[in-house]
């Protein structure tokens, strides 16, 4: 739970001031820090980051009444802006998850010395 919360909070707070791949740094740091089984680490960090990305995307989708989401969705031949919310959610989650996996292996490699 702590991993999930940290991934969510760090992805959210750092997101506005960092490059798009910030969730990878968040995942990497959590993977380095907390020894957890791969499935727990990956799912907690990616879900936390995904919620941050998806939540912010949904905030804009709702606040903008789907105006821009609808236009961009059409550009990608998708039926609605909510599909873009899903894409943003998935990208944030996968980026954090890959980062966490790399962090976990770095920690394992360090510990195996």
């Amino acid at each position: 739970m702590i991993l999930f919360l940290l991934a969510f909070i760090a992805s959210l707070l750092g997101g506005f001031a960092s490059p798009w791949w910030w969730p990878a740094i968040v995942g990497l740091a959590l993977g380095l820090w907390k020894p957890e089984p791969r499935s727990v680490l990956f799912s907690a960090t990616s879900c936390g980051a995904a919620l941050a990305w998806g939540g912010v995307a949904a905030f804009y989708q709702i606040g903008n009444h789907g105006l821009l989401g609808g236009r961009i969705a059409e550009l990608f031949s998708l039926p609605s802006g909510w599909w873009l919310v899903l894409i943003s959610t998935a990208l944030g989650g996968v980026t954090a998850g890959i980062g966490a996996e790399a962090g976990r292996y770095l920690r394992l490699a360090y510990n195996a010395k």
Binding site: S18, N64, L68, L84
Partner: peptide, 12 residues
Amino acid sequence: FSPFQGFWRNAE
């Protein structure tokens, strides 16, 4: 697609 940097930020 980043909601922090990408097109979402242009949704007024």
